[in-house]
């Protein structure tokens, strides 16, 4: 029996982690393999009690936890939802996660929450807004956050900055760190017809506190061009593993998350993805 005494971890290890799903509770606690930390979607743990909080309390004593917000709408045109900021604060106060991250995206407009990570143009105006929102969040949580690069399917005519420059400028203005999703880099580059290695060359790797790896689906747009969908519903694709190896060769080992949110596999399948990341990290 593992010791369930509560203790806190102040950082994520430079090792594989997985996005936590309740069906993996037993596998994780009995046979974690190389999985050394967990990531949870913050919004799933904002109830007042019951199984989700009890499981998280148990797991947080065993593993460092990364709280990953999916609902704050940092890229939104409208002000941040104060109630939601307070909920995030409450979660971080009791969970004391080793890391907190959110997305360069928007998901709320007016009173509608759209449950997807939607894209924004990169301009001086959107940069100011995103930087203000990141600062507001960091002030509310009393901690530094990591901001994640999005996956995109289309381009905005009004963009005047590259995504890498935009992210770098946000870190300059706010002091936040970055979460680099390597699958998103590959998905966006394929969808926009750009070079993922060029993107990574421009990415400020020294500011990265965590990496994400996930699976995508392959499709075509109406003009016969490849269209990759960031589905998190299968194994990480080989070209993404190749980019991942290049990133950690350059940046050194980093906490690396396997994300598999849809068509969630059995524990051994997910663990074998983590084993593949562990093998790559051993060479970094």
């Amino acid at each position: 029996m593992l010791d369930a005494a509560p203790h806190s971890f102040d950082r994520l290890p430079d090792a594989p982690g997985v996005g936590y799903k309740a069906r993996h509770f037993t596998g994780l606690t009995e046979d974690p393999g190389p999985v050394a930390w967990l990531e949870v979607h913050a919004e799933n743990y904002m109830g007042e009690g019951g199984r989700p909080l009890a499981q998280l309390r148990h797991l947080a004593a065993l593993f460092p936890v990364s709280a990953h917000g999916v609902g704050l709408s940092i890229g939104g045109e409208t002000p941040l939802d104060r109630e939601h900021l307070a909920r995030l604060r409450r979660l971080c106060d009791w969970l004391k996660p080793a890391s907190f991250s959110e997305h360069l995206a928007w998901s709320t407009h007016g009173s509608a929450f759209l449950n997807d990570l939607l894209p924004l143009p990169y301009t001086p105006d959107t940069l100011s807004r995103v930087a203000d929102h990141v600062s507001e969040l960091q002030d509310a949580l009393g901690r530094r956050m990591l901001l994640e690069n999005p996956s995109t399917y289309l381009a905005f005519d009004e963009s005047t900055m590259s995504e890498t420059d935009f992210l770098f400028q946000v870190t300059r203005r706010t002091g936040c760190g970055l979460l680099l999703d390597v699958n998103n880099v590959f998905v966006s580059a394929t969808n926009l017809g750009t070079d993922p290695r060029g993107y990574l060359k421009d990415f400020p790797l020294e500011l990265v506190g965590e990496l994400h790896l996930g699976g995508h689906d392959e499709d075509e747009d109406g003009h016969g061009a490849p269209l990759l969908i960031d589905s998190h519903g299968r194994e990480v694709a080989d070209p993404v593993w190749a980019l991942y190896s290049e990133v950690i060769a350059e940046a050194g080992p980093l906490p690396t998350l396997i994300e598999w949110d849809n068509q969630v596999p059995d524990w051994p399948t997910l663990r074998s993805e983590a084993e593949r990341a562990a093998a790559a990290l051993a060479f970094a």
Binding site: A155, G222, H223, L227
Partner: peptide, 15 residues
């Protein structure tokens, strides 16, 4: 308006 595909076509299926 204002969204495009990399080849310059309408966003259509991408949106």
């Amino acid at each position: 308006e204002g969204l495009s595909s990399p080849g310059g076509g309408a966003p259509g299926k991408r949106f």
